[in-house]
Amino acid sequence: MKHINLEVEAGKVTVFIGPSGSGKTTLLRTLNLLQLPTQGTLQVDGIQATAGAIQKQTIQQIRSHSAMVFQQFNLFKNLTVLKNVTAALVLNKQLSNADAEKRAKEVLEKVGLLEVADQYPNTLSGGQQQRVSIARAIAVRPKVILFDEPTSALDPELVESVLNTIAALAKENITMVIVTHEMAFARKIGDQAVFIEDGEIIAKGPAAQLLSGTVPGRISSFVNSLNTTTVA
């Protein structure tokens, strides 16, 4: 990745769009330092990380304000849905067991999965697992949630429930950065769209406009190609 200069506004939804292998996920993973940058600086809510001199403490500070939702859900397989959601709260000693469970039930209710709280991830559908992982993310009350292709691993019929869950969160003014190939969704909930290709940001701007498919050039040809595949 090179020449990255990007600002994400608090409370807004930023969507990363671009062809596979362009570096969208890498950039997203740099935002919570799962991927360490080799150059440049990252600033999250006043915490600054400069490549080459990133302290453990800085990483923890940044991660304590963020949460991530993965393409492959990455739920803790040995824990029940409820324990998946309480894990960070309890292990990081943020809440007592009882309070963590109370919080977990609230967020599970929000994603419509309270009834499976005592089941193990493996007993759930992909869509349900992803909604649990969203619940796990919002349970820590992060300032920003990073979504890495949250619907790419799902059966088409299960995509909608996950997108609806994310869209509902967008209304609550949580800062979100979403890597997605769901164009219609990106247009609808995105405030800012960032088009990435070959490790560079090619364009950024209001999502509705940038992803409308009417801007002449590369972006529209990409957007339109995805639009047609969705219809087909």
Binding site: N32, R63, S66, A67, M68, F70, F76, K77, N78
Partner: peptide, 27 residues
Amino acid sequence: VDQGQIEAGLALNIKYPKLLIHVVMPQ
């Protein structure tokens, strides 16, 4: 044990040794 679970834990700021004990070891 699927490494993605460790990443998910790290992203939630859970320390690696704790992930090892509570997530990786049981599996």
